[in-house]
Design a protein around this nucleic acid. Sequence first.
DNA 1: TTCAGGCGGACGGAGGTCGTCCGCTTTCCG
DNA 2: CGGAAAGCGGACGACCTCCGTCCGCCTGAA
Lengths: 196, 196
Amino acid sequence: MDPSSGIRADARHNRLQLIDATRAAIATRGLEVSALDIAKAAGVGVGTLYRRFGTKEALLDAVVIGLYDEMVEVAKACLDRPDAWDGLTEFMTELVTAHRDSRGLAEFTAHDEQPSPELAQRTVALQDAVRLLADRAHEAGDLRADVTWQDLLLASRAPLDTDHCLGVDAGPDGWRRMLTLLLDGMRAPGRTPLAP
Amino acid sequence: MDPSSGIRADARHNRLQLIDATRAAIATRGLEVSALDIAKAAGVGVGTLYRRFGTKEALLDAVVIGLYDEMVEVAKACLDRPDAWDGLTEFMTELVTAHRDSRGLAEFTAHDEQPSPELAQRTVALQDAVRLLADRAHEAGDLRADVTWQDLLLASRAPLDTDHCLGVDAGPDGWRRMLTLLLDGMRAPGRTPLAP
DNA sequence: TTCAGGCGGACGGAGGTCGTCCGCTTTCCG
DNA sequence: CGGAAAGCGGACGACCTCCGTCCGCCTGAA
């Protein structure tokens, strides 16, 4: 299961370097980084990249799986919060942060293609956690009834590309204003009815 | 001023075809359409494109100016609405629609680079109109006081990329839910204070 | 009828990508 | 310590795509 067992020490080291470099690379440049750029950033030849992972996609998958795992952890931690609304707010903030911190992750979660089994499993875990967060907030009367757990996930993408518009600059924390407005709009009781 | 005067009829016709084709092309494929694709869609050779506009950028500019003009018109129409909040809601809906209907326009408004003088002029006109819309809604007590006109423009980008997330599909009108939630969050009185 | 102006699209040249392959280096086991 | 096995770097082949030019042919309009 562990792909780093029974492997020479230098090879294992390079493997980790590649994963780190890829994580950094897709964070700033998105999923379309070239294999050459990743290898350069890792201080390694392209040959090594393909030797270790076989495909660029396999490498990206390995990295994205790590990011998904972190999101699942965050969701579980937020479920342990005593207050339902606080947990939901914290989760949304963390989810937006994760998306904003990695352009590649944002591109990946928006893709509606069939993910690999490993990713599908993490996706289900995340959806389950979000469903619980939403249920809890509904029961506490904090989340308006017509807002679904799906809305929460979709809303986490809203503050991703709101930094500039028509000459206006949001500043480094502008996205927090956007998220606050959204969360206020989601709080019970609702005002304007939602379309289905 | 009119670049289609003193020009042969077939040339003028091709010019319009190119503008139409470009508008459609950037709508679905964004600003990175190739000159060849545009020319093909216009039923014209690439040579004609460069002969008429000199540069791909000049052609794109001409098209985007048209889109900006339409947005300015919409803003003015919304200022004529008797109810301040209705006008603001309608404007936001139209602005989001325009952005969603043209991926190229969305990419353009997000660019914070120095626009051409023609575009800068339209941008100022739009900002002025939005400022008036916000002022009116503030005075009517409908828009929470800590929401600025800049927030309105930035918020118009929020529902652009919220159609898929982690396996969830928003459906064709999902963005309307998002916009409704945002507008509810913007309505006076506010709940959670906003960061500066 | 004439011809300036317009036309299409082949083409040069630059840039970028993936994944392989091979001569050299390093690890690590006995 | 020595040698086999594993790993390494990066040049390379084989594509793609894109921009903008250029030239032989065509056509609108006087």
